[in-house]
Amino acid sequence: MSTKRTPRTDKELWRSLAPDGDTAPAAVSDLDFAAWLDGRLPEAAAAPVEAAVAADPGLRRAGLELADVLGKPLPAAPDRLAVRAQALVGFEAERQIPGGSGFLGRLFSSGTRYALQRAAMAGMAIVIAGSGFVVGGGLGESFAQERYGTTVGATSTTTTSNEFSEFFASDGI
């Protein structure tokens, strides 16, 4: 019977050994890791990153996965993904406008989009308010109410109550 030990395969030998794991892996920044993945680091700068990647299984898997993704043609992303991401940064008109936070400041600030539309809206609002004021009797009505307030009020109340009485009386109620 032979006492000679069967030689182990490379894998068996490696699995029977424990790499020196007393030292904790050094932290690697995202930018250093990316530079290492790009192969841009000189040998001296790459060595600590390689030591960290060798010591940390998570970092090792990250490296292998990212190298694989970056080395292949990329499939198109779902439309929803881009639409949602684009909405994260707002339109210029929605941002705070420098040089005047009030209504007039916003309306007349230069370099603002939609200034014409805003001015048109404000003009229309003024016209509508003015028309309403004129239709409602204008200042003349206000002065009359101020001077003859009690009499006019009493008269109109009486007139109104008479109209109601006539209306109901005609229906036989």
Binding site: D30, L31, D32, A35, L37, D38, R40, L66
Partner: peptide, 20 residues
């Protein structure tokens, strides 16, 4: 703003950030 184009490609850096 922390990304430095002189050190790594933007795509590679974004991939690292995305994985994390």
């Amino acid at each position: 703003k922390t990304y430095d184009p002189a050190r790594a490609g933007l795509g590679t850096w974004l991939a690292v950030v995305a994985r994390s």
